[in-house]
């Protein structure tokens, strides 16, 4: 079965008001939406909150969407927008995350943290510190494996701006990662 068929079938039935089909649609897209939010806000609980908000909005606008592919692009765009809204709200009413309370005195060696390497975790953290637009572009490029023109279509941003954000972000990330490797 080509990828996306299950999502398309679920989309067709969900538009007709089938709740079971909508639940299937949620299951089909949940890892994409949750991961976009997680890589953007870098917090599991907040990512789940954003992802739920996005799917509730999807339920409301579903009849206005044309196809499964349209729904996928809508989810990508709205998730990134909701993440930005969420972070702006958080800035106004900051919450202290447990990980921010106590900074470890020394950096642990490259070891496995929750089945993932420490370096990967640091890299995710670095991505989450990029400016909003650059972060959107990098996450869509590497999580969703989208080309610059596809990213441009999702975000409604000129292709040259996408390429520019991508280039600058990779330069910054490369420098910071090199510095981190030296520290380790």
């Amino acid at each position: 079965m080509p990828p996306g068929d299950a999502g398309n079938d679920a989309f067709g039935l969900a538009v007709l008001g089938d709740r079971t089909a909508f639940a299937d649609l949620v299951r089909h897209h949940q890892s994409m939406v949750f991961s976009l939010a997680f890589h953007f806000v870098h917090d599991g609980a907040q990512a789940e909150e954003v992802a739920q908000e996005v799917f509730l909005e999807l339920f409301r606008v579903l009849p206005t969407l044309e196809s499964g592919a349209h729904a996928t692009n809508w989810l990508r765009r709205v998730t990134t927008h909701r993440c930005i809204d969420h972070l702006r709200r958080e800035k106004q009413q900051p919450r202290i995350a447990l990980e921010d309370v106590a900074e470890p005195a020394c950096l642990p060696q490259a070891e496995t943290i929750g089945g993932d390497t420490f370096l990967m975790e640091r890299l995710r953290k670095l991505v989450s510190t990029l400016p909003e637009k650059a972060r959107e572009v990098v996450i869509l490029r590497y999580q969703e494996d989208l080309t610059p023109s596809e990213i441009s279509a999702v975000l409604g941003m000129p292709v040259n701006s996408v390429k520019s954000h991508l280039h600058r972000s990779l330069t910054v990330l490369k420098e910071k990662l090199e510095r981190l490797r030296v520290e380790l």
Partner: peptide, 8 residues
């Protein structure tokens, strides 16, 4: 690092 993750 940015691969998809399953939600809880």
């Amino acid at each position: 690092a940015l691969s998809r993750k399953e939600p809880p």
